[in-house]
Design a protein around this nucleic acid. Sequence first.
DNA 1: ACAATCTGCTGGAACGTACCAGTTTCGGCC
DNA 2: GGCCGAAACTGGTACGTTCCAGCAGATTGT
Lengths: 363, 363
Amino acid sequence: MNPHLTPTAPGRRRRPVRQPTIHDVAEAAGVSKSAVSLAIRNQRGVSETTREHILAVAQELGYRSNVWARSLVQGRTGLVGILLQDLGNSYHRDVTAGVEDAATERDLRLVIGHGRRNATRLQAELDSLLALGVEGVIIISSWVSPQYLERISKRVPLVVIGRLPDPVPGVDTVANRDEIGARLAVEHLTDLGHTNIAHLTSSSRPAAMHRRAAFTKIMRARLPGVDPQVEGPEQLEAAIRYLVFQIQQEKDAPTAVFTQNDRVAADLVGACLDAGVRLPDQLSIVGYDNSSICRMLRPQLTSVDQPRHEMGRLALEMLSERLAGRTEDRHVTIAPELVVRASTKALREPAGGEQQHRPMMVD
Amino acid sequence: MNPHLTPTAPGRRRRPVRQPTIHDVAEAAGVSKSAVSLAIRNQRGVSETTREHILAVAQELGYRSNVWARSLVQGRTGLVGILLQDLGNSYHRDVTAGVEDAATERDLRLVIGHGRRNATRLQAELDSLLALGVEGVIIISSWVSPQYLERISKRVPLVVIGRLPDPVPGVDTVANRDEIGARLAVEHLTDLGHTNIAHLTSSSRPAAMHRRAAFTKIMRARLPGVDPQVEGPEQLEAAIRYLVFQIQQEKDAPTAVFTQNDRVAADLVGACLDAGVRLPDQLSIVGYDNSSICRMLRPQLTSVDQPRHEMGRLALEMLSERLAGRTEDRHVTIAPELVVRASTKALREPAGGEQQHRPMMVD
DNA sequence: ACAATCTGCTGGAACGTACCAGTTTCGGCC
DNA sequence: GGCCGAAACTGGTACGTTCCAGCAGATTGT
């Protein structure tokens, strides 16, 4: 009959060492649980003296409020997910840092999901984030299928950092302007006198395709006589080998390469050096991402720099707008910048060819 | 009076779109919530036909069980935290992958905390993990103070991957055997004829100090006549400049360097190439970690390989032993292996010196 | 045939918190 | 001194789930 009999005697069956609860603090402090709740959350309704007393007791007992119970009753978790393709990638690291900073400001907690460069795992991880109760997800990956994205976006707001093949209703995007990145790279190279410029790319995913298209477009605009050459979408290694072979034969070989990203550029640099191709004398190379790789390579890599931190920050801001009620889709792009290093060099006077002449840009 | 009046009318104040609950599914399927609960968790107590029916209804409504409510009543979250110093680091990535794999097997969910190479942030992140309700934490960092570790370890089990200055009661550790790593590196170099071997290190944190001590010890044992030279603990850049200068002067310069890790090695390689030091002819270099950096550098870097995946896996297993009730501390070490690449080369016959002779190890 | 067991299902009671409607306390004012 | 109103504090309820005791109805054992 007495309801207080059951909970005390056989109850508390779970943890060997139970975490103190708001009840324990209340009892120890000689107040009601409501008072403790108010004191903890720094709300008014308790006097300053009792608040201090309660906090002291809580501190002593080592009380920590149970986020789960709190969010259960409040109906919100304050959690935001971020889905990465790959830890161990400085691009993702920097974007994440931007997201983190913005999240901290907005009192949101970030939960990281790790896709490990595997589409299946990526989706499982996304599910996992949802199960954890995130109120929105930022995705740094183009590997999630549009169908899946659309389904998920009905449940929680989604922001994709990067390119999507097509806009997905309900999904916001943040992307760098590949057209500008490609233009910066190509202009830099043409300014240095290069005309035979190739693009080296490793995949046919949306992001890579977009960058590749941007390259082709800007090449057509800047060098109408030249057919833009794209290498490697199916077989990167073979393309690199062929490129090196061409250069060694010196017939019609590209004198400059704009790569899809720094990793690909690093592979190319390695292959060139192994084959005895002198860099940057025989070949100028421009990467994309301005990652930590750039400074490790010799020659150090000229690269297009995306404002990674800013992109992360922006993504979180867009997500929190969604949480605040925005319903129309937003797609934001940010202009990248070129960081010139030692891997690009003016083309030596070609035998009898006509030389493109433009004033060199000073950085 | 009627308690059913209040919840229906003004209630449901939170989400605009409320997630379906177990109640909704029960109502739609025409069974009790208990039946739904059983069906969802695949427990016996419901017939196969009703289970299928319930699952179908749940699927249709898009029901997802609320982890928070579940763990509230179960008294456990099934969450394990991992605290990283740095996303964007392939060492951390690989260890994390190992932890993830083991966690999946044990039906634990991994939550990643990101310290961003900043001691304050690291502790904040650890707090954050605890607030999320993790049942244990794996820490890949030696930046957390022992006092803090000890305090936290009273609350949840802790496993540190790496070195601690001193064992902390209640904290398990997984570490690679730096003595073996150092021995492999030094033996490889002496086998190649090197005697003037320096150690290049960038910090005086426990892990680095331990590796350094291991180097000194093995040098004393292998080359009793030589004074083991350690460079850089305070000022890495200056030490590298000095090293390069020494080599250029060719007087008493080390002919081989064993570095604290691959990053440091990469800096050294870059400085050497910039200064025109020929690698590996004038200097052999051995790194530590066998990270992705190794294959990017030219010459490709010989490096000590820690079984990162295995270490992560082991850490999680130790954590789950703790969760199962183990109380005594465990400290496990794993032997690393040497991966020989192009950055190490046999010393050319010294002018009139005596040459250490040992048969070369075949890998 | 009847008790005993099993199967399939139900409703109520937690879990730890926030919210809310009350209730007490207390200071100020006429 | 009595009244009023705000401030301080309390107890009950709800959040979505699991667990548990219980209850029919079917099945088995003797």
